[in-house]
Nucleic acid binder design. Sequence first.
DNA 1: CTATACTTTCAGTAGATACTGAAAGTTCCA
DNA 2: TGGAACTTTCAGTATCTACTGAAAGTATAG
Lengths: 203, 203
Amino acid sequence: MSTTSFPSMAIPPAPTAGNRAAGDAQKQLRTAQDLFIRRWGEMGQIWGINRTMAEIHAFLYITAQPQCTDDVMERLNISRGNASMSLRALCDWGIIRRMHKRGERREFFESLSDVWEMFSIIAAERKRREMDPVLETIKQCRKMLDESTLGKSAARQEDVAATRQRLAGMEEFVEVTNTIFQQFVGNAKSGLNRVARVLLKAF
Amino acid sequence: MSTTSFPSMAIPPAPTAGNRAAGDAQKQLRTAQDLFIRRWGEMGQIWGINRTMAEIHAFLYITAQPQCTDDVMERLNISRGNASMSLRALCDWGIIRRMHKRGERREFFESLSDVWEMFSIIAAERKRREMDPVLETIKQCRKMLDESTLGKSAARQEDVAATRQRLAGMEEFVEVTNTIFQQFVGNAKSGLNRVARVLLKAF
DNA sequence: CTATACTTTCAGTAGATACTGAAAGTTCCA
DNA sequence: TGGAACTTTCAGTATCTACTGAAAGTATAG
C-alpha cells in the first residue's frame, strides 16, 4: 500500500506500541470525522443549506471542541471570507455559538450539542419562512373566490368551485402540519422522542 | 382604473348582468390561481425543487383540470423543452400523472388530488435519498471508532470518545426521525390525517 | 497613539443550474 | 409509405449562487 498523504510528514510518531496505537487512532478519528462532514454537507445541499455551511456545522458538531476561524479554513479548505460569512450565518440560525477562551484574543465557535434542540430551532425557522406565508396566501386566494366576494352564481361556476375545493384541501394540510411542527418546537428537547413513542403505540 | 390586460381582447363579453359577473369571476379565478402558483413556486425553491417544477405542479393542482403541454407552456411562459422535462420529472416523482382524453392525440397531465398522499410520496423519497445514507455513514463512522477496532486505550482518548458520543447523539436522532417518517409513509393515503389526530390528542 | 492580531465586507469571478429552441424522434392515420 | 401531430433530447446560453482574496474595519496591548 502507498503511504497515506499527511500535511507535511514532519513528526512521525516514535514506533513504540503505545504511540503507534495513538497515532493510528488519531488518523482513524480524522478519517471518520471527514466522512461524516462530507455526508452532512451533501445532505444540507439537498435541503437548501449550502454545502459549506453544512460542513462547517458538521465539523463543529463532530469534533465537540470549540474551533477558531483558521481551524475551519484549514480543515475545509475554504477562504477566510467564506468562513467568516458562513460562521456568522450559522450563528444567526442559532445552531452554533461564539465563545471566548481565557487569554485568547480570537473568537471560537462551538455547535450546540443537543441534536433535538438544533432540530427545533431549524423547524421553527422553516415554519416561519415557508409554511406561514403559504398559509396566508391560501387564505387570501380562498377569500377571492368565496360567495361573498363573487356572488352566488359566479362562485358556483364549475372551475371556480373546483379551485376553491383544492385550496381547502391544501389549507387543511398546511394547518395540520403546522400544528405538528408546533408540537415539536413547543416540546423542544424531550418532544420528538415523545412524538415517536406516541405514534408507535397508536399504530 | 386602467383596463386590465387580457391576451387579445377579441371577445368582450356581452354587457348583460349575467355575463359581466361571469367574466369577473373568471378574471378573479385567474388572479387567485396565479397568486397560489407563484407562492408555491417560491416555496419549492427553498426546498430544493426548482421554481418551475413547483409552479407546474401548483398549476395542475389548483386548476383541478387535466392540462396539456401547451397549456403549461402558455400559462407559465416557459419553453417546450422545459415543460417537457419538468413534466416528466414530476411524473417520476409520482405527484402528477399522464392521462389520455378520448379522441385527443396529445397527452394530458393531472395532479394527484390528495395532498396527504402527495406528501407521503415526497416524504418517502426524501427519507430514502437523505436520511438513509446519513444513517449508514454514521454507523460506519461509529464502527471506525469503537473499542474493537481501535483497542481499549486508543478508543478512550478524549477526542475520540467525544466524537463517538456526538455520533451516538446524531444516530439516535436520525433513527427516531426515520421512525416518524415511516409512520407517515406506511399509513399513506388514509393515514396522515389519523397521525395528526393521534398527535393532537396526545399532547 | 501605533502596532498587532484578528474580523468583516465586497467587487469580481468561478462554477452550478435552469432554460431555450431547434433538430431528431415517436406515434398514428390515410 | 408519407406525412401530420405531438414529444423528447440536448448543445448552447443565460441566470443565479457560492467563493475568493484583498482592502477596510475593529479591538487590544504596549
